[in-house]
């Protein structure tokens, strides 16, 4: 196992192991942690692929966010429920299988309910399997905590993810096509900034957002805060 040196990012940002029987963590805290303080995208820098790839319109962002929320909550509840019976050596493999099952369900449901959106999301629905947010929460939180707490944590993280996607989607859709949810905002004279709905726009928008968040956190802390390195790779390094 590749613990140790490669771990700091995930461990510092991930959920702290609960102080046993010392102070019960308020359910509200479990729920709200993911929304802002430990926002999976803006603070933990997890799940970059979908954040960049499907946020060229608000509708796509919402669909992707809801699908991820479903997989996240389902997997975390199940992982937490069976945590006592899963041997340590095969836990990551088990988590991945559970996640893949939920993603298959989400994929087929989306295809049946909203075929148009399913088509425009394309390969990124099945790719939820490798969204690091889910594996990171399953490993760092759900595999150690009770079902209730895991569900709350997953809900909070999922909402944090949806909010970030919505923010990205809104910025990119307004600038890139001059519309919001498909409705024209500025009239026919608006010259859309097409690049914003194309791949470079995703990089630039998220870069700018992270910049603002970094600046804001630094200002609030009154000193330089350590820069965010993506926690994704180290967290899942335990696969081996």
């Amino acid at each position: 196992m590749t613990h140790g040196a490669v771990e700091p990012a995930s461990m510092t940002h991930g959920a702290p192991v609960a102080p046993r029987a010392r102070r019960p963590v308020a359910p509200r805290e479990d729920l709200l942690r993911g929304v802002w303080k430990e926002n999976p995208v803006l603070v933990q820098v997890l799940g970059m692929c979908p954040t960049l790839a499907v946020t060229n319109s608000v509708a796509n962002s919402i669909a992707m966010g809801l699908a991820t929320l479903f997989v996240l909550v389902g997997s975390c509840v199940l992982v937490s429920g069976i945590r006592r019976w899963v041997p340590d050596q095969v836990r990551i493999a088990t988590f991945v299988l559970i996640i893949a099952t939920f993603v298959t369900v989400a994929d087929m449901t989306l295809e049946a309910v909203a075929p148009a959106i399913h088509k425009s999301l394309g390969a990124f629905v099945p790719l939820i399997v490798v969204n690091c947010i889910i594996l990171a929460r399953a490993e760092a939180f759900a595999s150690r905590q009770s079902v209730g707490r895991s569900a709350l944590d997953a809900l909070g993280m999922g909402f944090g993810f949806i909010l970030t996607l919505l923010l990205m989607g809104t910025i990119r859709e307004i600038l890139g096509s001059g519309t919001l949810l498909g409705r024209s905002l500025f009239g026919p004279s608006y010259e859309p900034w097409v690049i914003m709905v194309l791949p470079p726009g995703g990089f630039l928008t998220l870069g700018a957002l992270l910049l603002v968040v970094g600046w804001w956190r630094q200002r609030k802390a009154g000193r330089a805060v350590p820069v965010n390195e993506p926690a994704c790779a180290p967290t899942v390094g335990k696969v081996a």
Partner: peptide, 10 residues
């Protein structure tokens, strides 16, 4: 504030 991931993304 630009250092780290923000810079890489830009």
């Amino acid at each position: 504030p630009v250092r780290g991931t923000a810079l890489v993304l830009l």
